[in-house]
Design a protein around this nucleic acid. Structure first.
Length: 563
RNA sequence: UCCCUGUUAGCUCAAUGGUAGAGCGAUCGGCUGUUAACCGAUAGGUUGUAGGUUCGAGUCCUACACGGGGAGCCA
């Protein structure tokens, strides 16, 4: 049975892409090998235009004339080509670009159905399968044996298989003609129980409502688009670091350090919550617990990843983190994903540059690879979604010290340009309204704020040299973006043991608890720096989705763990 | 956790303290190479829960539950 299997294309040496091209029913001339056309895609493409995993067929379709065929190949250049031969149907994204006349089988779910009495019965059935934003339309003729009994009863979300022929839609694009005369068929795989009460109707729903239907909401345009963008970004994160020689470190989810410090933690325990073992003083005896001491879900992989940084030079973590704070906002989750790189022999400036490069890489990638979804976000979710990313990619982020930032705020107040609810004073933390003013109204672009007063920052941040008396700062930075606020928080770490100890003391932390962290400063310490990037927040910023609960598949927040 | 606000048909929302309404969706019919289709008809309700005031409560009062916006905490 046609059609062709999906083919994974790999990039062996960063100069060319080799791969197998399905023989599109003879649509492309060229040398053949066991039924495959074997192209070599020349490096005339700018590097990074496309990626491993994209079928070559799509590239040929979207970029005609830029592919050279290499007849000398007897295989895919000795490189790995993986065939998913068990998948013998075509995805919607490939059907949309397949040559007219191809026989295809499609599998997917019905979005909409419209009927016509013309030509002895005709139904237009739009189906989707997640492979791209758009649906493809099946034009089903009334001559199918199950036309009246099944096809005209199809409703939103019915699962079907369709055999048909790719034809051109009169108004542009591809569609699939399904008629008995051409061995076409519609097979219903799964019906929808009661179309009247199916929660996802072909009409606009509010985000709040869809949140209550989290198991079904991915079937909508919006959540399908969010899902593809999220995936695209996750892959881009790994690619960004991998291409720059970073190692991906799997830091632990469970931690027995009660010293992570960044807020309330979830307890991890196997003790009986009602009859737990007691210490003589009446407290819970955690020595009888699974880990022999009190343990928690991690709030950050940073301290662990620093240890790996002190041998591997460039490392990062990308995993879930947990905060048991009672935060109820559109920017907070109890379970969220964080990207935390750590670089050795680096200062704050290098750290900021890495963060800026990474953000721009992510923006560029999503604009290229998910243009279809980004177009949708710009049309329906946030008008400037595409425009502002394009804009940001082109110019350097602004670097402003905390002290300069405070001056800007004070000037704005003095000249009556702006009124704030909270006062601005050097040494205190900036409020949301202050940060928003800086990035949204004053600078109107992403801003890297640096060198904060030490009193408002964590113990591990490096003390700046040559500070004014009473104005001691640390090498910390926050990246603020319009609409979201803080998206990155990072710092150069304190690599000098005496200074670190001094800070631990000042903040009344127990040195003994940090023995292994302090060891890093005793044995071959080097200047190093890193940052944390909230993955959901970057998705929010890119897509314009207003609530963070709508950019993660199953959000976890206070009183929210239904799905 | 605090402040503000909301909860009425499958969904989005109306309804001076006096008979519960519309649009969309669904179902049926008509028209149509349709694509946010269009036209007509039908079905669909213990007004978030529990109390209270009143001759009478969707509407006023109290408590609770849940949703949303903002703040704090942060990413």
């Amino acid at each position: 049975m046609l059609p062709w299997p999906s083919v994974e294309v790999i990039r062996p040496r960063a100069t060319a892409i080799w791969g197998c091209l399905p023989a599109w029913s003879g649509a492309f001339p060229g040398p053949r090998f066991k039924g495959w056309i074997l192209p070599r895609i020349s490096p005339v493409f700018p590097l990074g235009t496309w990626r491993p995993g994209w079928p070559v067929g799509r590239l040929l379709q979207s970029l005609p004339g830029t592919v050279r065929l290499c007849p000398e190949l007897s295989g895919p250049g000795g490189e790995r080509v993986q065939e998913f031969s068990s998948m013998s149907w075509l995805r919607v994204v490939d059907a949309r670009s397949a040559p007219v006349g191809s026989r295809v089988t499609l599998k997917g779910w019905v979005r909409t159905r419209r009927d016509s009495k013309a030509e002895g019965g005709l139904s237009f059935v739009a189906i989707h399968d997640g492979s791209c934003f758009d649906t493809i339309q099946l034009v089903v003729k009334g001559d199918l044996p199950n036309y009246a009994s099944e096809v005209t009863r199809l409703s939103t979300a019915c699962a079907i298989e369709a055999d048909g022929v790719i034809v051109a839609n009169p108004k542009g694009g591809n569609e699939v003609a399904v008629e008995a005369g051409q061995q076409g068929a519609i097979r219903v795989v799964g019906w929808v129980d009661d179309p009247d009460t199916y929660p996802i109707q072909p009409k606009p729903h509010t985000m709040e409502y869809l949140r209550e239907q989290a198991h079904l909401r991915v079937r909508t345009n919006t959540f399908g688009a969010v899902t593809r963008v999220r995936h695209c970004l996750a892959m881009a994160v790994h690619r960004f670091f991998h291409e720059r020689g970073f190692y991906y470190i799997h830091t632990p989810i469970i931690t027995a350090n009660d010293c992570e410090g960044a807020g309330q933690m979830f307890k991890v325990s196997t003790l009986d919550t009602i009859n737990c073992p007691r210490t003589p003083e009446g407290g819970v005896d955690y020595s009888k617990d699974f880990f022999g001491k009190q343990s928690h879900l991690t709030v950050s992989g940073q301290l662990n990843v620093e240890t790996y940084c002190m041998a591997m030079s460039r490392v990062y973590t990308f995993g879930p983190t947990f905060r048991a704070e009672n935060s109820n906002t559109s920017r907070h989750l109890a379970e969220f994903w964080m990207i935390e790189p750590e670089i050795a022999f680096a200062d704050l400036a290098a750290d900021a540059q890495l963060a800026e490069d990474m953000l721009k890489y992510l923006f560029r990638t999503v604009l290229t690879e998910r243009a279809d979804d980004m177009k949708f976000f710009a049309e329906r979710i946030e008008k400037t979604a595409v425009e502002r990313l394009t804009h940001i990619v082109d110019k350097p982020f602004l670097r402003v010290t905390y002290t300069e930032g405070v001056k800007v705020l004070e000037d704005a107040i003095r000249t009556g340009k702006k009124k704030f609810e909270y006062p601005v004073k050097w040494g205190t933390d900036l409020q949301s309204e202050h940060e928003r003013f800086l990035t949204e109204e004053h600078f109107k672009q992403p801003v890297i704020l640096t060198n904060y007063p030490k009193g408002i920052k964590a113990f591990y941040m490096r003390l700046d040299d040559n500070c004014e008396p009473d104005r001691q700062t640390v090498s910390a930075m926050d990246i603020l973006v319009p609409g979201i606020g803080e998206i990155v928080g990072g710092s150069q770490r304190e690599e000098r043991l005496d200074k670190l100890d001094q800070r631990l003391e000042e903040m009344k932390l127990n040195k003994a608890d940090y023995w292994w962290y302090r060891d890093l400063r005793r044995y071959g310490t080097v200047p190093h720096a890193g940052f944390g990037l909230g993955f959901e927040r970057i998705i929010q910023f890119i897509t314009g989705m207003q609530n963070i609960r709508d950019v993660i598949p199953f959000p976890r927040a206070p009183h929210l763990a239904e799905f």
